[in-house]
Design a protein around this nucleic acid. Structure first.
Length: 195
DNA sequence: GACCAGATTGTCT
DNA sequence: GACAATCTGGTCA
């Protein structure tokens, strides 16, 4: 049983959303086909007291979507060649989001292999830049609502919400400022988590 | 396995 | 002009 997450889900505190997104299913439908994965690793980025957050230095053209309504996709470009996929949280105007860092491939694996240029299952979605490529995302999807297709996030009732796995909380990865904050959440022991 | 360098460009100072 | 919420492919072990 699958249930589409509504805007209400994304209105809670950002770290809470990050934790609850673990086990949920990210789905992208394109003309090429459908790809989907189970979220196994996330990071929260806070407006307040978090220098690593793009929104921490105020609103700009690039981060405008973060200040928009919750439940929308914030996709941005880094390191001259990669994109990262985030979900906007909190009420409009705040500027917080959850970075999706890793997925466990579920559907459309052949298509993911083609997009990624590898047949190694573990290497398809085990990192922010990788999952974006595997799902065929780009800045075209920046600002897309996740509450209606073709890009959505659903909770899997069969995963049983909480009890089914242990959540590991650690420091965030790959940042220079605000690196000490315990805002990274991952499914403990899952082999598709990055690094 | 661990560690390191290089790729490459949008965005902000 | 500096730097970035990363990945890949190289070397060495």
């Amino acid at each position: 049983m699958v249930q589409l997450l509504t805007e209400r889900f994304y209105l809670r505190e950002t770290a809470e959303v990050a934790r609850r997104l673990l086990g949920a299913c990210l789905v992208h439908e394109t003309p090429e086909g459908l790809t989907a994965g189970r979220i196994v690793e996330t990071e929260a980025y806070l407006y307040k007291g978090d220098p690593a957050c793009h929104a921490s230095r105020g609103r700009t053209e690039r981060n405008a979507v973060m200040f928009g309504p919750p439940g929308h996709a914030y996709v941005y470009f880094v390191y001259g060649m990669h994109h990262c996929f985030n979900v906007v949280t909190m009420p409009e105007g705040i500027g917080e989001a959850v970075l999706i860092r890793a997925l466990e491939p579920l559907d459309g694996i052949a298509l993911m292999e083609k997009r990624r240029g590898t047949r190694e299952l573990r290497n398809l979605c085990s990192g922010p830049g990788k999952l974006v490529q595997a799902l065929g995302l780009s800045r075209e999807q920046n600002g897309f609502p996740l509450t209606t297709g073709p890009l959505t996030i659903s909770s899997h009732k069969s995963f049983g919400g909480a009890g089914k796995f242990e959540v590991e909380v650690t420091k965030r990865i790959g940042i220079n400022v605000g690196a000490d904050l315990p805002l990274r959440f991952a499914v403990k022991g899952n082999r598709f988590v990055s690094r």
